[in-house]
Design a protein around this nucleic acid. Structure first.
Lengths: 175, 175
DNA sequence: TATCCCTATTCCATCATAGAATAGGTTTAT
DNA sequence: ATAAACCTATTCTATGATGGAATAGGGATA
């Protein structure tokens, strides 16, 4: 269970368009884009870029300019692209409430940006939630009180709300 | 916005009964107790104990024994108790989904353990959620599509599920 | 013409984190 | 009988995350 890092999201943004750290920062700060999804500091972005370059998912090249400070523009590699696609089309995503809130929405955001079909992504998420929900409902029958069942009830409710919300993700933007 | 740490929960457990780190560890690992709420490593418990002692919320004393290894038993101080009570009866708790999942349930767990009334805690949480819900619903009207409104819709759904779940918290354990 | 803000990145100190190391006692198995 | 494995109990260590300061030059503002 890896932690919640924006690596693949940044990879997706770089696939859409080669950019440097400051551009990405703006995207992650803008509430209309990913500002409501991630709360990232400056150094986090640059650390991810460094890591992605180490894995050779991206390559950076220095841009010299008279009008603006030196900057490094990163572009995605073929290896990075295959990693990104694997992440986008993950056949069995996590049904963790937190991951849905952050990772699933990020996946949708990137898929829309790249013009990828979003229906399979939503469908995979729906299946994962459905499975987890029925697992929890079975588990629920064995514990009738206490903190244990309270947590289970809360998560069941949360997954129910997510299942009701998932169809809204299909709605296309009107431009 | 402070991070999610089990400091006050440990303070509550020590108020219930003086204990040492290994005892607390067992409680945080037992799924019937706090195992479903927190995922803590060994060192985290001991770090919190160190921090709480630095703040003089607790005092540790070494216990010598022939049959078991040396250990340090911690007990709460008057200052610690006042901090604990302030946390338990927080008049306006966070309406963050994550904090409810972790902090609110912890508060309930500790209140039950100490024989404190839980109704005011639940009621305060309900008010906070209600306020946040109406704030989000207003906000919702201004953005009609995109990632921004998707996030808002998800959180609205989650808070709705929480409001429906809160009454279940009142139900007493049958022993 | 001094001050502030914007672009753009690096640096730094602190804190969190998981798990290994330690160490003595007890149970289990051969 | 004795090695192996496990339980109690805590500390240590290495890695990495984290937020914010530092840097630095250019342009805008007063």
């Amino acid at each position: 269970m890896s932690a919640l890092t924006p690596d693949m999201v940044i990879l997706g943004l770089l696939h859409h368009k080669p950019q440097h750290g400051y551009d990405l920062l703006a995207c992650f700060h803008d509430p209309e884009q990913l500002g409501r999804v991630w709360k990232l500091s400056t150094s986090q972005i640059y650390n991810v870029l460094k890591r992605l370059e180490q894995h050779t998912y991206i390559i950076g090249r220095a841009i010299e300019s008279d009008t603006s400070p030196a900057r490094i523009e990163y572009h995605i590699t073929a290896l990075g692209e295959s990693q990104l696609m694997a992440w986008l089309n993950h056949p069995y995503p996590s049904a963790s409430v937190r991951k849905i809130r952050v990772e699933f929405i990020s996946r949708l955001h990137i898929a829309r940006l790249l013009g990828h079909p979003i229906t399979p992504i939503i469908e995979a998420q729906r299946r994962a939630c459905e499975d987890e929900l029925s697992r929890l409902q079975t588990e629920r029958e064995h514990a009738l009180f206490g903190t244990y069942s309270l947590v289970t009830d809360l998560v069941i409710g949360q997954l129910g709300a997510i299942m009701a919300w998932l169809p809204l993700c299909e709605i296309e933007e009107k431009s």
